[in-house]
């Protein structure tokens, strides 16, 4: 393990977004049906929009986050885990913006994958007009470092 160079020091990199993400009724309905359910009648959006809205409206693309980590997105980043805490439900027709940051990038040796970097980043979704976050999500990605394979 000590033979490997350290992972790039990227903790704290801002992922604050400038885009506004609006959940349209049409897209929410299509999304719900694509997963086998009808859209809710009470105006709430499918909760998986926690992931979609934060990913689409964060300050970097997935490829851009990988680039920050000195990793080529074509080398196949893999989702490790995804967690979310909701303060309030997401609503159809509402507009949101994202704040967030890279939490850590940790280099590890895996028996299955060889050398890999474990990337954790945290995103929060806020009303476009400002105010407290409706949700906070931590996503963990595994970045296999083929170039460091023994």
């Amino acid at each position: 393990m000590d033979d490997f160079p350290p992972a790039p020091d990227v903790a704290g990199t801002s992922l604050d977004g400038t885009k506004v993400f609006t959940i349209s009724a049409e897209e929410n309905a299509a999304l719900c049906r694509s997963t086998g359910v009808e859209p809710a009648a009470d105006g709430t959006a499918h909760p998986i929009y926690y992931y979609i809205a934060t990913q689409v409206a964060m300050g970097k693309t997935v490829a851009g986050v990988c680039e920050t980590c000195e990793f080529d997105v074509d080398d196949g980043p893999m989702m490790g885990s995804s967690g979310v805490k909701f303060a309030d439900p997401l609503m159809v027709g509402e507009s949101y913006k994202v704040t967030g940051e890279i939490v850590s990038l940790v280099r590890k040796q895996s028996r299955k994958l060889g050398v890999m970097d474990v990337l954790t980043y945290r995103l929060r979704l806020h009303p476009e007009a400002g105010g407290d976050a409706l949700l906070e999500t931590d996503n963990v990605w595994v970045l296999p470092r083929k170039e460091l394979a023994g």
Binding site: L31, S34, T35, G36, V37, T44, H46, P47, I48, Y51, M78, M79, G80, S81, S82, G83, V84, K85, F86, P89
Partner: peptide, 26 residues
């Protein structure tokens, strides 16, 4: 999408509930 399937299970199995937190591994 796989996370969404599990959310669908939760919302259908416990009508009227809302998800407060969820964490899952791929």
């Amino acid at each position: 999408i796989n996370v969404a399937y599990m959310m669908n299970m939760l919302m259908a199995a416990v009508p009227g509930s809302r998800i407060e937190s969820m964490n899952s591994r791929f």
